[in-house]
Nucleic acid binder design. Structure first.
Lengths: 217, 217
DNA sequence: CGGCACTTTGCACTCACTGCAATAATGGAG
DNA sequence: CTCCATTATTGCAGTGAGTGCAAAGTGCCG
C-alpha cells in the first residue's frame, strides 16, 4: 500500500478512498493481464486474484469484464459550457462551437495516481482496435446528449426550424455524429502517438483538418 | 417452427438452399422473439426451438446471439467503384466522391424472400438504439477499408502527401470517419421512417444536408 | 447402390454474470 | 470505547452463452 501524504488524499473517509483504491487495483490488474495475453485470454477469476478481491466483488465494481478495460466514458459537458454553446448566436460557426464544447469536457487534470492506468489503457486500445471501437460504442449516451444539445442550438439560431421537427432532428443528429467522428479521430490520433501532447491539442488539430478538408472541396 | 416452402428456392443444390433457409429461419425467430420481449429476454434455446434446429446448430450459423439480430455488415464497395473513386481526380469534391462510393455499395435489390427480415430488423434496431450502436460498431472492418481507400485517393490527388505518412494517415482517417458518420445518419433517418423510400435517397439527403451545414459556416 | 463430404446434433466443459443470504468492516452516536 | 446502522465483501448456487469433439445423419456423384 502506497503511503499518501495529506495533500495526496483526494477526499472522503476511509470508505471512499478504499473504494477508489480497489477500483484502480482492478483496472491495473485487467489492463496488465490483457496487455500480456489479450483481452480474451484473461478471466475474471485471474483479474480478481491479482487485484486481491473475490470474483464476486469484481462485479460490484464493474458490470462486465469489458467495462473494466474500457474505463469511464467522458463526462457530459458542464452546464455553463452547454449554455455558452447554445447561446453563442448564429455568428459563431457551428463547428467552432462544437469544438469549444468538446474541449470544455476534456478532463485536463487527471489524477496522477491513475496516470499509469490511462497509459496502459491507451496502449491496449491502440493495440486492439476492437476494444477501441467498443469504447466508442459505449459512448452512445454521450452521443444522444450531444444530439439534444445541438437541437437546442439550432432552434436558437433559427427559431423557424422548431416548426419542422423532422428537419431539426435530422440536422441535429448530423451535427452530433460529426462531433462524434471528431472525438474518435482526435482520440485515435492521440493514442497512436502514445499520448504525446494533450488530447485538447489533438482535438483542435482535428477541427483544423476538418476545416481544410472542407475548404478544398 | 417456421415452414419452409420450395418457393424459397433461389438457386444452387439442396444443400445451399437449405442453408439459406435455415439462416433465414434463425433470423426470423430471433427478430420475432426480440421484438416481443427484448433482446435480453430471449435465449438461444428458444430461438433454436422456434427455428427448428438444435441449440448447437445455431452456433454453426452465427458466432454469437448478437450476430443473428445484427445481420450481415454491408459489403465493401466493388473494385470498379473503388477505382473510380481513387482516380476521379482532384476536380471531383472529396465528399461527392465518397457519396458515390457509398451509394455503389448499397444493395438496392434485396431478395424479396428476406424483405420481412429486414423490416423486422429495422424496427428492432429503431426501438433499441443499443442494438443499432452495436451494429455500427460491428462495421469496424468496413471503416478500416474506407481508411485505406481514402488514403489511396489522397495520394493520387496530391502525390506529395505520400511523403508525410502521418498527415496522410490522419487525413484519410478523418475522411473515413466522416463517411461513417454519414452512413450512420442516413441509416438512422431511414429506419426512423420505417424505411419509406430507398436508403440510397437518404444517403443523398444526408450529403446534401452535410453540404448545407458546411455552407452556413 | 456405395463411398465421400458436409451438416447436424448431443455432450461435456469453461466462463461471464446474477440473486441471495451470511459475514465483516466502517462510521457515527452516545 | 461500545454498540448499532450502514455499507462492503464474499460464498454459493444457478442461468445462459459459447466451444471442441466425436457420433450420427444427409445430400452428392460416380
Amino acid at each position: 500500500m502506497t503511503v499518501v501524504t495529506p495533500s495526496d488524499t483526494v477526499q472522503g473517509g476511509v470508505r471512499e478512498r478504499k473504494r477508489i483504491a480497489t477500483r484502480n487495483a482492478i483496472q491495473r490488474a485487467v489492463l496488465t493481464l490483457a496487455l500480456e495475453r489479450g483481452f480474451d485470454g484473461v478471466t475474471v477469476e485471474e483479474i480478481s486474484h491479482d487485484a486481491g478481491i473475490s470474483p464476486r466483488t469484481f462485479f460490484n465494481y464493474f458490470p462486465t469484464k469489458e467495462a473494466a478495460v474500457i474505463g469511464d466514458v467522458p463526462a457530459t459537458p458542464t452546464e455553463p459550457a452547454i449554455e455558452r454553446f447554445i447561446n453563442a448566436g448564429p455568428r459563431q460557426s457551428l463547428l467552432d462551437g462544437i469544438r469549444d464544447l468538446l474541449l470544455s469536457s476534456i478532463d485536463d487534470a487527471p489524477n496522477p495516481h491513475e496516470a499509469d492506468i490511462e497509459t496502459m489503457r491507451r496502449k491496449l486500445l491502440r493495440e486492439h482496435p476492437y476494444l477501441f471501437t467498443l469504447r466508442m460504442a459505449n459512448m452512445r449516451q454521450l452521443e444522444q446528449e450531444l444530439v439534444e444539445i445541438a437541437e437546442q442550438r439550432l432552434v436558437r439560431d433559427d427559431p423557424a426550424l422548431s416548426r419542422d421537427k423532422e428537419r431539426l432532428h435530422s440536422r441535429a443528429r448530423l451535427v452530433a455524429f460529426l462531433a462524434f467522428a471528431a472525438i474518435k479521430h482526435a482520440w485515435s490520433c492521440w493514442a497512436e502517438h502514445g499520448g504525446r501532447g494533450a488530447l485538447d491539442d489533438r482535438l483542435v488539430e482535428t477541427f483544423d483538418e476538418l476545416e481544410s478538408l472542407i475548404e478544398s472541396r
